[in-house]
């Protein structure tokens, strides 16, 4: 077996997780998290007039809950079968921020917690804001050409 044959052989037989089962779990858990968000929205819209703020507060609540489950050591057990179902909703972002923060405690609050907090979620903020700026530039040019500014 030469090198190329070995790589092909090894990668070919490496079992991937059953995708159908993963997808079903991702669908159910991801859908349920969004339903919880929707229910929270209904609660918040009873005292908040602005729809956007109510959705925003619903997301903040989910961030809180996901972080709490992370701290209690339950989130990763849940994510192990939910996969993308907990990753894609804002809960995945909250877990990605909370888990290195909790673990960073062994290096102290400055060098550990704060430094490591965005070790996983940092790229989301970096490329999120970068793409919003690019989008902003395009939108601005469009507005100038259209004569709105």
């Amino acid at each position: 077996m030469n090198r190329k044959q070995y790589i092909e052989f090894a990668e070919g037989r490496a079992k991937r997780t059953s995708s159908l089962k993963n997808c079903i779990w991702a669908f159910i858990t991801g859908g349920m998290i969004c339903v919880i968000g929707q229910l929270l929205f209904f609660v918040y819209s009873t005292f908040m007039k602005d729809e956007k703020s109510a959705y925003s507060l619903a997301s903040v609540t989910l961030v809180f809950l996901a972080g709490l489950l992370t701290g209690l050591g339950l989130f990763d057990k849940f994510a192990n079968f939910a996969g993308a179902g907990t990753l894609v909703p804002i809960t995945g972002f909250a877990n990605a921020v909370a888990s290195p923060a909790i673990e960073g405690k062994s290096e102290g609050y400055i060098k550990g917690v704060a430094t490591q907090m965005f070790v996983i979620a940092g790229p989301v903020i970096v490329y999120g804001s970068a793409s919003s700026v690019i989008y902003g530039i395009i939108y601005y040019i469009y507005m100038v050409i259209a004569g709105n500014i």
């Binding site: 991801g30 859908g31 993308a84 894609v88």
Partner: peptide
């Protein structure tokens, strides 16, 4: 909400797998 949230997660799951 269940439907769209679920579909968005399934797309990511397929990409991961």
């Amino acid at each position: 909400a269940f439907l769209i949230g679920g579909i968005l997660c399934v797309i990511a799951q397929i990409l991961i797998d």
